[in-house]
Design a binder for these strands. Structure first.
Lengths: 244, 244
DNA sequence: GGGCCGCGTTGACGTGGATCAAAGTGCCAC
DNA sequence: GTGGCACTTTGATCCACGTCAACGCGGCCC
């Protein structure tokens, strides 16, 4: 799709001397709470990669030969039905980890939503490291637990919430994740397209668009330029997200 | 709800001398592939418990003080919205493990669907054991990975499949799980109520009922007594489950 | 027995969100 | 500038599934 790949030619050698400790949100990433020795060993096998938006990291069924930690940008994970229907199972942002399901092949596809940089860990070496350092494995396990909890929340959303509740939940999630990454600013950045949002929420682009304008009309949110959304009343939004 | 609790008074001392190794589907359970020493230590902290159908094991937000391995029966996990809407996030059957998300409190509720027996592992002791035996932790991690993959499948189902596709997917899942537990018989046992199925698939009981009779009319399935369902054409069912 | 209750089925009807269609907007190439 | 393209918005219509309501059936208690 993209005519050429700018990202690959960019010189990153000066910006990331020690790739893993450069993970922007270290407290969130796999590097969190590791001993210096563990961190050094992890850095040894780390490759940093950069892709522009729309790049496919891997597809469902591909051999799972690497794990990633997102250090900048947004990545979407999705599954497809044979006829092309798509369900986005999650968006990964700075600090998020990709490839927790340590199976032989990926159970989903991953594609960049924006220009993205990642730390890449070859799987074999990573597994060896996990065997050596149980603390790291424990860390990954705890991350998997959190993902499991998030997956359950999303099931509740997909199965039982209305379109309006889904959109409000989605905006709140973006807001909360921004806060956790240390960005407290209220106008939330929504880097993904309407189609991506629709496929994440189990809706169509038309419904997503309509619901946004509806919420805008009711002054619950304000749509700003650059894909930003101001949440005018967090409490109201929270109620709207759960049908209270 | 139940007038009295038969199960608690039943004498299990003779049937399960070594509780963990008695896990019916050991190859599936947490005990799988453990060394004798690990197994013995695990057995030391195992309690076996039995509950009749409709018993609440724990509720969302309760302090997470135990993990369980289902040894017989069926358990449902669910989350609720403030107004009572419910999403069942999974059914656990013989061999399945409960409480993988090792957080301070449970993120969901768990309730027995049928009479159920379980191995109960106090959380603190279990964590200590995991620290001692990284192999066990690895085993749990791998189970969590599988759950994550299952959760993604369910998201795809909830977000993108029609009622008919959901029902077919559901029946196929029951069938596959029965096979994995060693029961090859085709008439699948469906132990849960229409309401439970509906809350699992993001539908209403009426739609579930109608879809069943519709599939019955088309000779895709046959409804048998005792909550059993014969799948008349597995290939057709597989196609129906994915809109092929 | 009779009444009640929980569960499942069926029917009639309503509606939220999908579908189909078209127009608006911004961006890039030329 | 003009054209093309991808994305978004808006409108009109449709329909799959929800809602509301009635009824059937089996189990259990009195």
């Amino acid at each position: 799709m993209p005519p050429f790949d700018l990202s690959r030619t960019r010189d990153t050698s000066t910006e990331e001397i020690h790739p893993c400790s450069a993970c922007a949100a270290r407290s969130l990433s796999v590097c969190a709470a590791l001993e210096p020795e563990e961190l050094r060993r992890l850095a040894d096998l780390t490759q940093t990669v950069r892709y522009e938006s729309g790049h496919t990291l891997f597809g469902e069924g591909d051999a799972a030969d690497a794990l990633y930690n997102v250090t900048a940008g947004t990545v979407k994970l999705y599954k497809l039905l044979p006829d092309g229907r798509r369900q986005i199972t999650g968006f990964l942002m700075t600090g998020d980890f990709l490839g927790l399901a340590l199976n032989e092949s990926y159970a989903y596809s991953a594609e960049t939503v924006t220009d993205t940089s990642l730390c890449r860990f070859p799987r074999r070496k990573m597994e060896a490291l996990l065997d050596e350092f149980p603390r790291m494995q424990r860390r990954l396990f705890s991350m998997a637990s959190n993902e499991l909890a998030a997956a359950q929340d999303q099931m509740l959303m997909l199965g039982r919430k209305s379109a309006r509740e889904k959109i409000c939940s989605f905006l709140l999630m973006l807001s909360q994740r921004a806060v956790r990454r240390g960005f407290k600013e209220n106008p939330v950045t929504v880097p993904m397209s309407r189609a991506d949002i629709a496929d994440y929420l189990g809706l169509t682009t038309e419904t997503v668009s309509r619901t946004f304008t509806q919420l805008k009309t009711e002054r619950v949110i304000t749509l700003l330029e650059g894909g930003k959304v101001r949440l005018n009343d967090m409490d109201a939004l929270h109620d709207l997200a759960e049908g209270a």
